[in-house]
Every structure is written in C-alpha cells, then in structure tokens.
C-alpha cells in the first residue's frame, strides 16, 4: 500500500503544477499587474510611478511566464510565475499582496469554517441516512413517493433561499437565534445553530435521494432475500444488513469531502458574517490579491488529491476484497 501512496503523491506533483499554471493564466488574463497595483493603491490619485513602485516591491515587475531578456535557467525562473509558485511546493504561502502572512490567516480562518462544516456533515449524514432508510423501509408507499418528491423539490431550491428563509424564520420572526455573526470559543455555539440547520436542510434533498438509491440497490440483492427467508424482521434486515453494506459507498463519499471541509462555504460564511476560508477566497478574488487566490487554489487542489487518496485507502479498510496495487 505504501508504494501505491507514494506513487499517488508523485502523480500529484504534475497535477499541482498544471493547476498552478491554469490558475496563473486565468488570473492574469483578467487582471494585469497594473490593474492589481491600481486596486491595491486605491482608485484616487494613483500615479504611474506609484504603480511601478508597487509592482517592483511585490515582484510583479517581471515577465509573466518567461523572461526573454534572460538566458539559461533564468529564462524561466526570473518570472512572476516561478517566483510566486516555487515556494508553494515547500508549504510556504508567503505574504498576501496587502502584506499579510497567508499561512497565518489560513490557520486562523480554517477553524470557523470547520466549526460549521463538521457539525453540518455529521448531523446531515445522520439525518439523511435516517430519512433515506425510512423511505427505503416504506418503499412503494405514499410516504416513499412524497418523500422523493419533497427531496427533488428541496434539491431544486437555491441554497440562497434556505439561508434567507432561515434567517427570516428563526432569526427575525421567532427570535430564537442571532440572524448573523460569530464569536470565539463556546460563545460561537449560538451563532452556529442557524448555519448548521440551514446547511443540513439544504443538503437533505440530494443526500436522501442518493442514499435511498444505495439502500434500494442493496435491498434487491440475494443476501437480503436470504436474510428475509431466514425469518428476520424488516427492521433487522435494514439496520443489520442493508445499512452495513450500503455504508461502503457512503463512507467513501464522506472521506473524499473530509479535507475539503477546510475550504469553507462561500455563501453561508458571507451571509452569516463568519470569518472562514470561503469568504477569504472570494474577498481575495474581489481585491485581485493573486497571492491569496493562488494559495487557496493550491491548497484546495492538495486537499482534493488528499481526499482521493484517503478514499482509496478507506476502500481497503471497509471492503477486504479491495487491494491497492
């Protein structure tokens, strides 16, 4: 297995370089270093000298991808792309274009993101599995039919609707929780209730449909028929056999998203004023802070690759028939 993991890690390097190049090209197609300087220096009274000075100080006065004025290795290394990218592979995110340490900011902002994402994932998982098991149990009844219809309706509704509706109902009408905000420590709990509820409800539609499909697929298999033939009750069949076997795709689906929980939710963080990593990325895009955008895309890619590797490993753990080679 170790050889497999090492091989996957090595595969990740060209992928990350590719992601870095694409991010770089996309960013600089839209924004030139001059545009970035103008935005950072402000919209009023910005002189060409100030722009040049800012670019020089931040290393944006070099050519983008190749330096025609240099020879040898410097042809590639004395460029904005190389100077900005090489440190990422050593885990050094460097300073943002506004001068703040990106690594420090990420370490501070990942906790609020996790504070929402982890309970949303766990509670959502529990509720989705319960509801989908219930639908599978009552399959081909009115409850199953209307359950599926409700799930389709729920997954068709924009998450923005859940957010605004939740804030209106629980925060504004019923006065049960703060409409928005965040705090540190235990004081954060009262601010987490609403975003977690909304996150869970927003995920019920797609989650229940997906898990119901998994359970129904298992129910049709021979071992379930055998269990029933042995005289086991339906509840025992569902929880003792169907659930356990259907957990394999559920578990692997969960493992792949685990690392991405760090990245936060853009909409929820924005509407609830939560200082997480989701809003960090979108703020950076709006401010044309390439250093942060590059770092967050890189981090997202690394976490995604990590998620896929963990998924492969989890297959071997939950299904002994699977061998990594």
């Amino acid at each position: 297995m170790m050889a497999y993991i090492i091989r996957r890690v090595l595969y990740a390097i060209p992928i990350l370089i590719g992601v870095n190049i694409i991010t770089f090209v996309l960013f600089f197609v839209v924004n030139s270093p001059d545009d970035m300087a103008r935005l950072h220096l402000g919209v009023k009274r910005v002189t060409p000298e100030a722009i040049q000075s800012w670019k020089r100080e931040h290393g944006y006065d070099k050519p983008l991808l190749y330096n025609a004025g240099r020879s040898g290795v410097a042809f590639l290394t004395d460029t904005i792309f190389f100077q900005n990218s090489v440190k990422l592979f050593s885990g050094d995110f460097g300073l943002s274009d506004s001068g703040r340490d990106i690594g420090y900011d990420i370490s501070q902002r990942m906790w609020p993101s996790l504070a929402i994402a982890v309970p949303t994932l766990l509670v959502g998982l529990a509720i989705n599995i319960t509801l989908s098991l219930m639908l599978a149990l009552f399959r081909a009844t009115y409850l199953d039919f209307w359950g599926v219809v409700t799930a389709v309706v729920m997954m068709s509704i924009s998450s923005l609707f859940y957010i605004i509706g939740g804030q209106f109902l629980l925060g504004k009408l019923l006065h049960l929780v703060p409409i928005s905000g965040y705090d540190t420590g235990w004081s954060a709990l009262k601010f987490l209730v609403l975003p977690v509820i909304i996150g869970v409800i927003g995920g019920i539609g797609s989650g229940v449909r997906w898990y119901r499909t998994l359970f129904l697929e298992e129910i049709g298999k021979d071992y379930v028929r055998t269990a029933r033939a042995k005289g086991l009750g339906e509840l025992r069949v569902m929880f003792g056999h169907v659930l356990r076997n259907a957990l394999i795709p559920i578990l692997t689906g969960v493992v792949v998203v685990l690392p991405l929980l760090f990245m936060g939710s853009l909409l929820i963080e924005s509407f609830f004023g939560i200082p997480g990593l989701g809003s960090y990325t979108i703020d950076a895009i709006n401010r044309q802070d390439f250093a942060i955008v590059r770092s967050m895309v890189f981090l997202g890619s690394v976490l995604y690759i990590l998620g896929l590797i963990l998924t492969d490993i989890s297959y071997t753990l939950v299904d002994p028939r699977v061998r990594l080679s």
Partner: peptide, 18 residues
Amino acid sequence: LPLLLAGCGDGPWNNPYP
C-alpha cells in the same frame, strides 16, 4: 439543546452580543 445553547444567558435569545 440548540435553542438552549442559543438562549443561554439573560436577555433575548437572538442577541448577537455577550
């Protein structure tokens, strides 16, 4: 439970301040 946590302390439950 969530509401208890939200409402712990004096005053309105939806108060965003300590």
